[in-house]
Nucleic acid binder design. Structure first.
Lengths: 162, 162
DNA sequence: GTCCCTATACTCGGATAGCAAGTGTCCGAGTATAGGCGG
DNA sequence: CCGCCTATACTCGGACACTTGCTATCCGAGTATAGGGAC
């Protein structure tokens, strides 16, 4: 079981976008440059975010991406779901309905206990991801990142986004 | 993000093995037959379980698999870990240490907030999986499965394991 | 009848192909901007 | 000097290869059993 690398990239991008002044957009290739990741592939993840309404995009010369709603209203779960899709990690194939002891389908109305347990665990996972928002991550960054790095980031951003 | 199909198969197999009388072994190909899954591929999962100590195997003519310890001491997490490995689903590639705002490595002693949040969520997931044991699943089966199915299963097992 | 030996059939176990999804890349459609031209 | 128009450069967005890891399969090593023969 492995989360796509795109989840990490997308989250970092949202953190950056959440740090920008309201209304300022950042081009996709700049986001890629900032993280040193393949620009085109990152573009793919950004499109997933856009379809989910997490970011908005404006085309044209001074276009780019910005958050689609306040950072406090975007959870980690939103991002993970946008990139990975809605399907649960555990997919019950109902193998209990096969084999020599199978009986009529009407006896299998409830999901089997194994699937229920798995899904319950995933629900806990999702609930925890829902608790943390982009705003939280931005605040955590502001509190912990070295001032040297903050200055370098601001310098680079102001130079690039003008 | 997707869990391997082997997790589902392995869990069902453990449930069956936990339902057998103590000391009785069940061959791998019979477990596959019971669930209608590819026998050789299931064998691979069973070997993973064996390496983790969850099941024991005896070779030879009347050999097979049986649980390696009491069903109450085997958790769903044990099985998932045995099949999927110990690596977390989210793998931080430290992209924060790259790009134009990167600073010296000594500034990155703590894991980044994104990774910590992801790992915290996974911990909740694991904790929930740890709570449910094979014994729980067997008890749940005994309580809910239609008597018709139970009888068919017992008939088949007694016919096959003699 | 009892013990031993041998051949057998069955088991597990690791090594070997096939396939799907994630990963990475390319190029085209569309738009706000910048500059030039006319009024 | 001001407004408009056109060309441009830049953006996003979907369509096309590649690689990794999961899926599936095959065949060999090892062992308890069953049967037969000797005592």
């Amino acid at each position: 079981m492995k989360l796509s690398d795109g989840v990490e990239w997308a989250t970092h991008c949202c953190t950056i976008l959440g740090s920008l002044p309201t209304g300022v957009a950042m081009p996709g290739h700049r986001l890629a440059e900032f993280h040193e990741v393949p620009p085109d592939y990152l573009g793919k993840q950004l499109q997933s975010l856009r379809k989910a309404g997490i970011v908005e995009s404006t085309p044209g010369r001074r276009g780019g991406f910005r958050l689609g709603r306040p950072a406090a209203d975007i959870s980690l779960l939103d991002i993970v779901t946008a990139i990975e899709g809605h399907e649960p990690a555990f997919r019950c194939t109902e193998i209990r309905q096969r084999g020599p002891s199978a009986v009529g389908r009407k006896h299998y109305v409830r999901p089997c206990g194994i699937a229920r347990a798995m899904w319950r665990a995933e629900e806990k996972w999702r609930a925890e991801l829902e608790r943390v928002s982009i705003a939280d991550l931005v605040a955590e960054l502001d509190a912990t990142v070295a001032t040297e790095q903050t200055e370098k980031a601001i310098d680079w951003l102001t130079e690039v986004l003008t």
